[in-house]
């Protein structure tokens, strides 16, 4: 089997003008990026726009890519900036709650897997920066040193922040689980009284 060409080599080709190579990188990363955004915002249409925006920016700013720069952190840095621009561009009356409709994936996922649905809901309760960190480290599989490059800080600081985010997630998850159990008890109690 031939070894796939590393992202960084492809990006150097793009930088030097071979735009079609960006198509290869697009195929590699459109799904991960899309999931990053869709799990962050629960807005499919906006997520697709953002994926497109990221690759457009890569194309526009291709000359700023320095050979040897790890591609994934570089790309996620662009992805975060694109997201920030997108949020600031939105009309001020659009709050985060409106942007994230209630139970984005829950309806389908709950039937398949209640745990996933609960996890989604717990993730949604976290502050966005924490959700972002957990998605990058756990869902996108970025190493701590790669995330540190995305955020422009030390890997040690990222480890601490990821751990805190996990603790918050656990609290949110347990809270939801308890809430669900209470609800079931209440319903059962009501049925019993009848």
């Amino acid at each position: 089997m031939t070894r796939p060409v590393p992202d960084e080599e492809l990006m150097v080709m793009v930088r030097d003008g071979a735009g079609e190579m960006l198509g290869v990188l697009f195929d590699r990363y459109q799904a991960p990026l899309f999931n990053f955004y869709s799990k962050l915002t629960a807005d499919r249409a906006a997520s697709e726009d953002l994926v497109q925006e990221v690759f457009l920016r890569i194309l526009k700013y291709r000359r700023s890519y320095r050979p040897g720069t790890p591609f994934r952190p570089w790309m996620y840095q662009i992805a975060r900036n694109a997201r920030t621009d997108h949020v600031t561009k939105q009309r001020p009356e659009t709050s985060l709650d409106e942007e994230m409709p209630a139970s984005p994936h829950a309806s389908s996922a709950a039937e398949q897997n209640q745990q996933h649905a609960l996890l989604h809901r717990a993730l949604r309760q976290l502050a966005e920066d924490k959700r972002e960190l957990l998605l990058l480290s756990r869902f996108q599989g970025l190493r701590y040193d790669e995330i540190a490059q995305v955020f422009g800080c030390e890997a040690g600081a990222i480890k601490v922040r990821v751990h805190r985010a996990l603790q918050d997630l656990r609290d949110a998850y347990l809270g939801l689980e308890r809430g669900g159990a209470d609800m079931r008890r209440k319903t059962a109690g009501a049925n019993h009284e009848l």
């Binding site: 799904a31 899309f34 499919r44 697709e48 996933h116 996890l119 756990r138 996990l166 997630l169 656990r170």
Partner: peptide, 14 residues
Amino acid sequence: LAKNISVLPEEKPS
């Protein structure tokens, strides 16, 4: 929970 995040179902872009 950390492990479950990594196996959340992947959505497909259009």
